[in-house]
């Protein structure tokens, strides 16, 4: 269960005030909103990359509002992938396990498992430099789920993909959600993604998050 309790984010002229949201365990929540409505700011605050002005963020009833990002157990896939330029794909996927001192054999097994799920086996030794947009997003997703996060935050993961890659990524996201049994918060402005993936649809408008059933 992810709960935002009267969360307020003030950033210069931009503000989100007293956001209240509950996402049940195992849900695939889609948060829609216009460009500039504060979707990414909200996601980054949940991940710990921005500080809220007030309010609380609760994950499974644990207050994580003041915890550093490293202790929140949230997998984050940013819109720009932000892969590590000097690491090959296998090391990127295992990074979350490496920093948690998971033993090499166990780490290797999990890397293979995640690579299999996201069809990355043929790319394991490559650096991000030569990968396509879809491949970059798959690696970023693999990197974010390898350490079995409590929540997976996806920031417009399909926005830079062409149509065929988008459909295959939607299938992969569904597969990840089913097999990893992870709660997902996915932000987008695509109604197609909302229809195909969301078990809970939310809309961010006028500084408020509210349930959104209009497209289903």
């Amino acid at each position: 269960m992810i709960k935002l309790d009267k969360l307020t984010i003030l950033q210069g002229n931009f503000s989100l005030r007293e956001i209240d949201v509950s996402i049940p365990q195992g849900a695939y929540a889609i948060l829609m909103g216009k460009t500039g409505s504060g979707k990414t700011s909200l996601l980054e605050t949940i991940c710990g990359l921005r500080r809220p002005s007030s309010g609380r963020i609760l994950i499974n009833d644990q207050d994580v509002t003041r915890l550093p990002p490293s202790q929140r157990q949230i997998g984050y896939v940013p819109q720009d992938s932000a892969l590590f330029p000097t690491m090959n794909v296998a090391r990127q996927i295992g990074f979350g396990l490496e920093v948690r001192n998971v033993k090499t054999a166990q780490r290797k097994k999990r890397i293979e498992e995640v690579a299999e799920l996201l069809e990355l086996n043929s790319l394991m030794k490559r650096n991000p430099g030569g990968l396509s947009g879809g491949e970059l997003q798959r690696v970023a997703l693999a990197r974010a789920i390898s350490f079995r996060p409590r929540l997976l935050c996806l920031d417009e993961p399909l926005s830079s993909l062409d149509e065929p890659a988008r459909q295959s990524m939607i299938d992969l996201l569904r597969a990840v959600h089913d097999s990893e049994n992870v709660t997902v918060l996915h932000i987008t402005h695509s109604s197609m993604e909302c229809r195909q993936l969301g078990t809970l649809q939310l809309r961010l408008a006028n500084g408020k998050v509210e349930p959104f059933e209009g497209l289903v």
């Binding site: 550093p68 990002p69 157990q73 932000a82 590590f84 990074f95 920093v99 990197r143 350490f147």
Partner: peptide
């Protein structure tokens, strides 16, 4: 700096 920020969400100090 973005990949460093993402590294911290993955558990890195």
């Amino acid at each position: 700096a973005r990949p460093e920020q993402i590294a911290t969400t993955l558990g890195a100090s």
